[in-house]
């Protein structure tokens, strides 16, 4: 099993960069044959990634969430998987390159630095922790996608406002669709984050005697949850829409990103496993 894990560890970034290349080629050239082929290519990449994650779990007897670089490969997978589902549901095909590049970046960092840990802390073998982490990762992936669509919305908005009609104008779907994609991704993200918080709230006090509500990761995640909950409520009640709500998504993502960096790499608490 170990040789398979090693091979796939290096094949995956290659597949993601090729996938990014195919999506970019289609974005620039708008070749009809590539339009259909690229989806198949992404599917095969995700299939390979699934095999890799399963093989890794089997080889090291724990889910791949025991160190930051294992988390990164799961993040790469969940970002592309979320995009793939979104593409299938909405049939909006011109935005993949902006999402897949993120998967590639996470995967290449993971592939270079990942360690093969057989011995891990017992707490990291907990199934509830696995569910908790997967919820959090899927949530953050969805929020990332929401921010990317928000960013694309702003690009198209600027082209339309300033009459500079370039590739963005030609290839992207319209503003309303971009806003919807950003909004629905944020809603999905919030649902998963809620799940992660709920599971964490049940499990953490049992698992850690030194559990504290003042834990930085807990506070940061709650803050992110609050920001998105306010934004989504404002949108649903018709209070905010268009550019305002898109900015909200981007700011929410930046808060989530900063808080993740601070809580994972700078501050230390019972909630830090790596």
């Amino acid at each position: 099993m170990k040789p398979l894990v090693d091979i796939l560890n290096w094949i995956l970034p290659l597949l993601y960069i090729l996938c990014f290349g195919v999506y970019t080629w289609d974005f620039i050239k708008d070749v009809r044959r590539v339009t259909n082929a690229k989806r198949l290519f992404l599917f095969l990449t995700l299939l390979t990634h699934t095999v890799y994650l399963l093989a890794r779990t089997a080889a090291f007897q724990h889910p791949p969430i025991t160190n930051v670089f294992e988390i990164f490969t799961v993040l790469a997978f969940s970002i592309s998987l979320s995009y793939f589902i979104l593409e299938l549901v909405t049939d909006v095909r011109g935005t993949g390159l902006f999402i897949i590049i993120l998967s590639f970046l996470f995967q290449i960092i993971s592939s270079v630095f990942i360690e093969d840990l057989v011995e891990v802390r017992e707490i990291l073998r907990s199934n509830l922790l696995g569910v908790h982490v997967f919820h959090a990762l899927l949530g953050y992936s969805a929020l990332t996608i929401s921010a990317v669509y928000g960013f694309l919305y702003l690009q198209l908005y600027n082209e339309l406002k300033h009459s500079t009609f370039g590739l963005i104008f030609e290839r992207l779907p319209n503003l309303e669709i971009l806003e919807k994609l950003s909004f629905y991704s944020a809603v999905i993200g919030l649902i998963f984050i809620t799940g992660a918080i709920a599971i964490g709230t049940i499990w953490l006090p049992r698992a850690f005697p030194n559990f504290s509500m003042g834990d930085p990761k807990l506070i940061a995640t709650s803050l992110v949850w609050l920001v998105y909950a306010i934004g989504i409520t404002a949108r649903l009640t018709g209070f905010w829409h268009g550019k305002k709500i898109v900015w909200f998504s981007i700011v929410g993502f930046l808060i989530a990103l900063c808080s993740t960096i601070v809580t994972n790499f700078i501050s230390k608490s019972f909630h830090s496993f790596y």
Binding site: F169, N174, L175, E176, I177, K180
Partner: peptide
């Protein structure tokens, strides 16, 4: 065409 780049439905 421009309208279609702003509104979907």
């Amino acid at each position: 065409q421009l309208i279609e780049k702003i509104f979907s439905a």
